[in-house]
């Protein structure tokens, strides 16, 4: 019997070493190879950064269009997903009766489990449909991509909102009601503020998911090279797609180096968002609610 226990202990240590070793290798490999390419010129190429930011000049051999594309994509997707997702989460937690809740929960579970490429295919199908039905001007573009991404992260936001609200103790729920608050007042003025940390960390994780997703956007309008996105209906570049594209299509070592650089940037963005979400889950209730 003791042999088995010892074996389990050693096995668990071995697993830990394998996992951590593998992840550190992945990250270390990226940094070792991409370190030298990091710098302002990685993003802005030969263009002066200020000119690029003010849109005075195009950036040709830098990541600026991809970064700008990813940022606008994430901002738009979150814009669509947050109001809808929070409203749905509030409905599920505070209004829905047990039967409706069970049915809606099933749909949200399926939605959360859908592979992102299927969501991308849906976005593409909708674009084709709109193109045929309404206007030839509609084709896969920034707008369609951001809506498909919003669909992808909607269940995250709904779920975190719902769970944060349902996690509140009954006493918190009753306080404002006992003081004459209506159901809506209780939700808006007490319940949502008290579960804000959970909701916001969910939103941040959703942002991370939007920033890293490649499968959805490759079907809905991302391209390898087009410059900074001009409008909602235009093509755009994005960091994760750039990384994918470079890995398959690089022609020289400079391009490959910028691929490593892009990978480091994306990794850092995602990890920082993650750290932020964790910090907020502990802190935000403190910061958002203790104002006089």
């Amino acid at each position: 019997m003791r042999v088995l226990e010892q074996a389990v202990v050693h096995f668990s240590r071995l697993c830990g070493i394998i996992l951590l070793g593998a992840v550190l290798t992945v990250i270390g490999y990226l940094f070792v190879h991409g370190w030298s390419s990091l710098g302002l010129s990685l993003i802005f190429g030969a263009t002066p950064p200020l000119d690029a930011l003010l849109m005075k000049r195009h950036v040709f051999n830098g990541l600026f269009p991809a970064v700008a594309g990813t940022l606008s994509l994430v901002a738009l997707a979150i814009c669509w997903a947050v109001p809808m997702g929070m409203a749905a989460g509030i409905y599920l937690a505070e209004y829905a009766g047990p039967k409706i809740k069970a049915i809606l929960n099933l749909f949200f579970d399926i939605m959360a489990g859908l592979p992102s490429i299927v969501v991308g295919l849906f976005g593409f199908a909708v674009a084709v449909f709109l193109n045929r039905r309404f206007s030839g001007a509609i084709h896969p573009c920034l707008l369609i991509s951001s809506m498909a991404l919003a669909f992808l992260v909607l269940p995250y936001i709904t779920r975190t909102t719902q769970m944060a609200l349902e996690g509140l103790p009954l006493s918190a729920r009753m306080t404002a009601l006992s003081l004459g608050a209506s159901r809506l007042q209780n939700i808006v003025r007490v319940l949502v503020p008290q579960s804000l940390s959970g909701i916001v960390s969910g939103i941040i994780l959703a942002i991370g998911r939007c920033a890293e997703d490649t499968a959805v956007i490759m079907l809905t309008g991302v391209v390898a090279s087009t410059g900074v996105p001009r409008s909602l209906l235009s093509h755009y570049e994005a960091l994760p797609f750039y990384i994918y594209y470079i890995s398959a299509q690089y022609t020289n070592s400079e391009e490959l180096a910028s691929g490593y650089g892009a990978a480091i940037i994306l990794l850092c963005i995602c990890l920082v968002l993650f750290l932020l979400a964790f910090a907020i889950r502990k802190r935000i209730s403190y910061h958002a609610l203790y104002r006089a």
Partner: peptide, 29 residues
């Protein structure tokens, strides 16, 4: 519930300032 006040076993101030806590029911009204 405005006519029937209630105080619970465990004090349940809301995470706001002292002033806001007391003024809260009036604001709701």
């Amino acid at each position: 519930r405005r006519q029937v006040g209630m105080v619970f076993q465990v004090p349940n101030p809301l995470p706001m300032s002292i002033y806001k806590n007391v003024a809260f029911p009036l604001q709701l009204k």
